[in-house]
């Protein structure tokens, strides 16, 4: 599907242009859980599709746990650690999750939106799109 756009890089950042973004996202997520097997337990406990899942921490994680999770993920997913194969998309996603969850105010707002989303999912097929998730694509 990427091939339909002239440049593969162009397809990703401008999310509105490309309906494939969510599909790719799932692919990346499954790739991640496959590589970081030691974190599988945390993934299972986290809310599906949430920033907590991105950082592989529990909803109740302390700030210290969030920082540690960010650091250990950075060691794996930062383009410098991954080599030339990475374009940084995974790391940007992790970074954005960390930016929200490490700021107490932003985290509180996000938690509220998560609860609202959990309610909405039952009534609507489409989950809320947020800038954190959108801009990664």
């Amino acid at each position: 599907m990427c091939a339909s756009l002239s440049s593969p890089l162009a397809a990703r950042p401008i999310s509105n242009f490309s309906p494939i973004s969510r599909l790719r996202k799932t692919a990346v997520a499954s790739f991640k859980s496959a590589t970081a097997t030691d974190n599988n337990a945390a993934v299972a406990l986290a809310v599906a599709g949430s920033l907590y899942e991105t950082l592989r921490v529990e909803r109740t994680a302390s700030l210290n746990e969030i920082k540690m999770a960010y650091r250990s993920l950075a060691k794996v997913y930062h383009p410098d650690a991954m080599g030339s194969s990475s374009d940084g998309t995974d790391f940007i996603e992790i970074r954005n999750a960390y930016a929200t969850l490490s700021d107490p105010t932003a985290r509180a707002v996000y938690d509220m939106s998560l609860r609202a989303r959990a309610r909405r999912v039952r009534t609507s097929v489409y989950p809320t799109r947020r800038w954190e998730t959108d801009q990664c694509w």
């Binding site: 440049s7 890089l9 401008i14 509105n16 242009f17 383009p79 410098d80 374009d87 940084g88 790391f91």
Partner: peptide, 29 residues
């Protein structure tokens, strides 16, 4: 705007008209 880990900056620009999902002219990179 996209800056990679080696600090290379790329600017991408595209135009969308309301009601359309696809860019109306090729995206500039």
């Amino acid at each position: 705007m996209d800056i990679d880990a080696s600090n290379v900056l790329r600017v991408l620009a595209g135009v969308i008209l309301p009601g359309s999902q696809q860019p109306v002219v090729p995206v500039m990179e």
